[in-house]
Design a protein around this nucleic acid. Structure first.
Lengths: 251, 251
DNA sequence: CCCAACCAAATGTACGTACATTCAACGTAG
DNA sequence: CTACGTTGAATGTACGTACATTTGGTTGGG
């Protein structure tokens, strides 16, 4: 193991230099499978274990690396199954929390081009897109109409899947390895059109949430989603404190 | 300074015991004005400075206490002007970001009792409540109808304030010292009633957000709020990533 | 062949020391 | 009375040591 050097004369603390070093090497994919232990790092960089621990402290707190007594330290596991965050996730988990079974009716599932959506995904207008339109049911009652577009070049393996019961993000991760890691969504309050009311089987005096979501995977726009959720029995619930704002699944 | 003792035989680490101790004493309001230094604490509890630093690490990261080189350590300053988090805050800041001036028309401002609200605030049904009803304008156009109830015993000083231009949370902090530190809100999509449409001066085909919020101050329910926001031009916007979910103010 | 005991490895806890760095307050010189 | 330098206090950085605790593999006995 070639000893590596840190600048001892500079003003930057040793532990911070080491922290940057480790993050750089992590980004380079250097520690797959196994992450070196504290003593190993201390020897490799010629610093004390105390300094190594200081450098690792934040990485461990952030979950970048995992360390436990007696265990081989590892770099953060496959980084959770791309836990879908956001209003949609909150809504659907709240339905599950209420004890209602969920399933979907796949109304359309094909490859097509859509100039408007392509633009939002930062693609050429004629780029083929996998398009999935589902009516989502909670219990036996329609809950939402969900439309998703993904670039066909990477999402084509999805066409084999049956989305009656499985989740899009789960299949996406399993069949293509893609995990959506960042996104932005807008939540609007709207009055459904007559056609939408029919699809959702709701009364004429019911409003709805219209949610637009653009998700990225490693910087590339990967999913455009439009969801219309019945507003009569489902609400967004959130808790906030000094620690921040968090959507919660209510019962 | 009477030396205090920590259990050295128990399984709980010393630094964690010390951390709990300090939090307890903080809650008891013991360290207003000045927080003891690391060496002081080390001597007082008979532990090493290293252990004290470990105990203080999280408190400092959380901003509970502030420490800087050379400075007298202090307990967290007045803790920002109770930054109002949540959907409402997001909506109103997005309006400001759009360059529109905001002001309110105070429609009702008195002390009254309300059994339903009192129950939500965990009070007796006949408890007097300060009630403030405002029509909030962005530019010169109605944006939202805002109703707030607070326990009169603590909120009475608010009655002197003019809420045409000032914010409730700012006045609450200034006049009573109360800062709302925790809360929960529900966001519903609804169709406004005819009366509400008139108040908000919006068309008949416009939906709205109905937001209920219950806020606490130091564990005590302190504010019940009901806000109806026009849904035709205002939306919730959020970003999400591995780091979490955050409402943003769009332009 | 299986299971238990042991051992090596790794992190967690806790002590000690030394020096650097920063800030505020005090005192002195001008 | 002001400006500057000194000094004390506090945290930051970095080193060292020792032992406890947990885990997983290895080894040896039944």
């Amino acid at each position: 193991m070639a000893p590596r050097t840190l600048s001892r004369s500079g003003s930057e603390p040793l532990w911070r230099q080491l922290q940057r070093e480790l993050l750089t090497r992590l980004d380079a994919g250097e520690f797959t499978e196994q992450f070196p232990g504290e003593l190993t790092l201390a020897e490799e960089y010629g610093v004390s274990r105390h300094t190594v621990r200081q450098a690792l402290r934040q990485l461990r707190a952030d979950g970048v690396v995992v360390a436990e007594r007696g265990r081989q330290p590892r770099v953060a596991p496959p980084a959770e199954i791309a836990q879908p965050l956001g209003a949609l996730y909150s809504l659907f988990t709240s339905v599950e929390a209420a004890g209602l079974a969920q399933h979907s009716i796949v109304r359309t599932f094909d490859v097509r081009a859509d100039a408007l959506v392509a633009e939002r995904l930062d693609l050429e207008a004629s780029t083929p897109l996998v398009y999935l339109e589902r009516l989502r049911l909670a219990g036996d009652e329609p809950l939402a109409m969900d439309r998703v577009w993904l670039p066909a070049d990477v999402a084509k393996p999805l066409l084999q899947a049956d989305f009656t019961h499985t989740s899009l993000y789960g299949e996406l991760a399993r069949r293509t390895g893609i995990r959506l890691d960042h996104g932005r969504e807008e939540v609007h309050a709207v009055i459904p059109t007559a056609a939408e009311r029919t699809q959702l089987a709701c009364a004429h005096d019911v409003a709805a949430f219209a949610i637009n979501r653009l998700s990225h995977s490693q910087g590339r726009p990967m999913e455009w989603r439009h969801t219309l959720v019945r507003g009569d029995r489902y609400a967004l619930t959130a808790e906030f404190s000094a620690a921040g704002y968090r959507l919660v699944s209510q019962s």
